[in-house]
Design a protein around this nucleic acid. Sequence first.
DNA 1: CTGAAAGCGCTTACAG
DNA 2: CTGAAAGCGCTTACAG
Lengths: 326, 326
Amino acid sequence: MARVTSADVARESGVSRTTVSYVLNARKDVVLTEATRQRVLDAAARLGYTPSAAARALRAGRSDLVLLVLPDWTLGPAIDTLIEHLSTALATHGLSVLVHIRHGGRPLDELWRAVTPCVVLSLSPFPAADTRAMQQAGIPVVGTALDDDPQPDVFAVPQASIGALQADHLVARGHRVLAYAAPHDDRLAAFADRRLAGVRAACERHRVPAPEVASVDLDVASARAAVDAWRAAGVTAVAAYNDEVALAVLAGLRDAGLDVPGDVAVIGVDDIPAARVAAPALTTVWQAIDAQAEHLAAAVLAALGLAESTPERPDDVFHLVQRAST
Amino acid sequence: MARVTSADVARESGVSRTTVSYVLNARKDVVLTEATRQRVLDAAARLGYTPSAAARALRAGRSDLVLLVLPDWTLGPAIDTLIEHLSTALATHGLSVLVHIRHGGRPLDELWRAVTPCVVLSLSPFPAADTRAMQQAGIPVVGTALDDDPQPDVFAVPQASIGALQADHLVARGHRVLAYAAPHDDRLAAFADRRLAGVRAACERHRVPAPEVASVDLDVASARAAVDAWRAAGVTAVAAYNDEVALAVLAGLRDAGLDVPGDVAVIGVDDIPAARVAAPALTTVWQAIDAQAEHLAAAVLAALGLAESTPERPDDVFHLVQRAST
DNA sequence: CTGAAAGCGCTTACAG
DNA sequence: CTGAAAGCGCTTACAG
């Protein structure tokens, strides 16, 4: 079963390949009889013709692939949702998402040169040299910066603002001595540091002491150690890097026989399913992954000149979900 | 900055493109002087040459892409781990993973015809017609079946065995009246039904009553309703579809003032981070995602004739993690 | 041992 | 309004 090519469609509809190409690409600048158009469309449908991505890519010098560059650590529960929404949104425009995990495997520069994606979408910053090389090769790089970024087409998930929201909430609930529960994994530092910076800034703003920081593993013993240190320092509220860390902190408090939120309040980030059914139910910061994915997709389209306007930032990127733990 | 092509490398090293191709593809059937080989390799490195994937794909009739077909629902925390391991393992052989979410976006048949992947790797069964069409086009389809599958190259994650392990454990702990907590989401039915079947089979084997089944949403109210019904039926142990459902069940039991495992024991599946720090710590079934990914990668390579032997099944695909909830 | 040439399937100036 | 021809970058028979 040989591949159906545009030549087959041309033969079947009695026109040249040029015309087939014109019709299938719906070129506005070429005038074609409606009859011809219809004939070609019918033939293509009848034959089940799908243009070869390889041939198009070779011709155009770029493929229909969006290279999604992920860091070498798991971004957490959000990442599959993000990929899903992104794929769906971009598929509408004939673009497919190629996932690249930076850690193992081929070096990035080899991959992008081989694939010639139409856009590189980065969820983790990579060497400026790579970015430059891609841009010189005419491949736009769309990135999510962690905070504000000089590039205008970049969607910044405001990590610091998330931390600030956590601290604001705790202070509003009457707490004056806060702690920050950082993840143990160093690879998350880029995110954790920025969120912590937001907590710090909020503390200053509210004129309360800077947060006591401890890193917490995802087990009871590690959390218990942090809890003991915090209690010694008079801490009454903990902002955790994310819900998983927050759940560990809850376990540490439980282990220490402390009441939540009576003795110590806890707030997380992400609103994972487990947060809602935790004991007590966890107050957290919900992030609009869908909206972020939508926005990223729009940024990709904009970079390709496929969207009319620069995508608007979604309003409700994140918000507080108040539950029993604060 | 125009693209560096094999012609550039040929010019730079003073040989023909044929020779460049021979050297770079390390063809064993052609004899080349070591000097020539070295000259070409040097020139390629100097110029930063990377063969165009598009041109190769056009020539070969297939690309270096592995099309990973995912179902339209989130597979849960395991999926990003799986993708990561898979990407890394396949990258070693110059293969890249292209993710396709079945739900939205382009229909599958359009995508594979356009992309001409070298292998399609499916984590969710799709229409037999699609499979046939791909195979006719010479594209091997490697799939994970939910249980046993006629195809030999398929790695079956034994869902029923997971359910059986749960039930075996509960019965071994002295329970005689079991319940099954199914997920509310219908899209998970394919997995949930098979796991439940495993629980049922184990109950029969142990000559205890068939499990009481209820579907549980990820919130306290829903879990509480299920708990009340189970208690009325004399249930003393619950096998949950996964850890998230199990955590909800724990919340329902807590809400009902029942003791775990004193009044009711609970076991999940997945060993998510939250399981370890739950109250009480959740007994669960751990799955070797890495090993499964490794195995899938091996199956892909075998399908391409790049691996010597058929990949062995990993031994320890899943096992019990005993904690406080049973 | 190495080179000239064809062809994979597409799009797009360029003629008619 | 439509067609013949070139060329994107690669590999591989086929000559030499």
